[in-house]
Design a binder for these strands. Structure first.
Lengths: 226, 226
DNA sequence: GACTGTGTGTGACATTTATCACATAATAGA
DNA sequence: TCTATTATGTGATAAATGTCACACACAGTC
């Protein structure tokens, strides 16, 4: 746990940018930064939701237990709030968050955060915008994922990692085959086969964990046609 | 279009209950009630999002175009806001809303609504709670739907209609087979076969559009095991 | 270096589900 | 009532995917 310096923090959320300096002081007194290592659970489904979690740096998977096993709902890239809905929506967390790489999280007192919403309209509006935008992307992803077949689903998340997360055609895969299968709701074996297929066709290449997208247009096509 | 009487309205949202009487007057001046018949589109994907839509009475499907056809994202039962996220999150609607039965919608000026968020912390907080709770149920449904096979998915939405929407074991099916297939992402034929199967096994009975759940425990079991 | 646990690759087969083709039924207009 | 349109039921088949079985690779530990 570190002593946060919220006022000077260069990684403030868009909402926090709208806080007054006295509000930032309050924040600073009601906030604790904790560092998580790869694989560490940040908050867990079924436990009490006691604090707002702000992902200052790092990469996190949000996941929940489904009927047949774990389901990865989305990846969250810093900077972003993590699971506002599970903190406000119920006393108990409905899903878990786990660090995929070393990550820095600021835990903010729920009361403090709520107070900002009540007293600072701009802050509240920014939080609402954030929740709304998240729902839009979630719905989009949901509609896509539920209608596409496996190759399309896998292609989509590879492109998503490339475009949204790493902004590069070459990146370290943050998920193993098992997690990939939890993400696109299939079996580990199918993921393994599909990645091999993509590699055989020269669409991607994999070296250990490093994945390179060689034919992005092909991947786009696979993703689109389902 | 009718002259709304927001102050006296007995169907105010939890958020609107928190408005002062002068704010309610403002609301009244910036609000119009429009009645939609079954099948009418309330707002359409790809068009400008200009107003907040509040579903005062009725039942609505929220749906968007997916890679292979329409996808029903959720049913919305009055009273509730319809598509706050698509109104705030972007200038353009990312999904559509269509009335499944005759429905009354109040359209509220976006500026007025935004003003309430800025100036009335309780109102803003209530809106945030609503968005958060919606995300929780959406995620739950997403995790379930993506891991279950067809019988489980169909059983789940029948139970959902029975428990959440109609609060009865007997109800008029608001969706035809085609729409059911859009909801659970399958083909119309599979829905038809499955409903026949359920009926043959005495789990449900269907008379025209009226569906009766005869063996709820069986349906629960099918829904759970996937 | 041997040992152990975890992750991965791949074949054979079973199951689930989509697709196509068509018959029949229900409904809304003229 | 007749007709056009839309909705539904059902068989045959093909395609996609899960499951099981097992081999192998790799990393960390002793």
């Amino acid at each position: 746990m570190a002593n946060p310096e919220c006022r000077l923090c260069g990684l403030k959320s868009p909402a926090a940018e709208l806080l007054s300096s006295s509000e930032l002081e309050t924040l600073e007194l009601n906030c604790a930064q904790i560092n998580f290592k790869k694989g560490d659970v940040i908050f867990r489904e079924g436990t009490l939701a006691t604090n707002i979690a702000y992902l200052k740096s790092g990469l996190v998977k949000v996941h929940m237990k489904g009927p047949t096993g774990d389901k990865i709902l989305r990846l969250m890239k810093a900077p972003t709030y993590l699971g506002l809905p599970t903190t406000f929506g119920d006393k108990v967390n409905h899903y878990s968050a786990t660090a995929l790489i070393d990550s820095h999280i600021c835990f903010i007192s729920l009361d403090t955060f709520r107070d900002f919403i009540f007293k600072n309209g701009s802050f509240a509006y920014e939080i609402i915008l954030d929740l709304c935008r998240n729902e839009l992307t979630d719905y989009q992803k949901y509609a896509n994922m539920s209608q596409k077949q496996l190759p399309g689903r896998l292609a989509e998340i590879l492109l998503c990692m490339s475009h949204e997360v790493y902004k590069s055609n070459r990146f370290e895969l943050p998920l193993n085959n098992n997690e990939l299968s939890d993400f696109i709701s299939t079996s580990r074996e199918s993921v393994s086969r599909l990645l091999s297929d993509f590699a055989k066709e020269g669409i991607i290449s994999i070296n250990k964990k490093e994945l390179t997208i060689l034919k992005e247009d092909m991947l786009e096509k696979i993703s689109l046609k389902g």
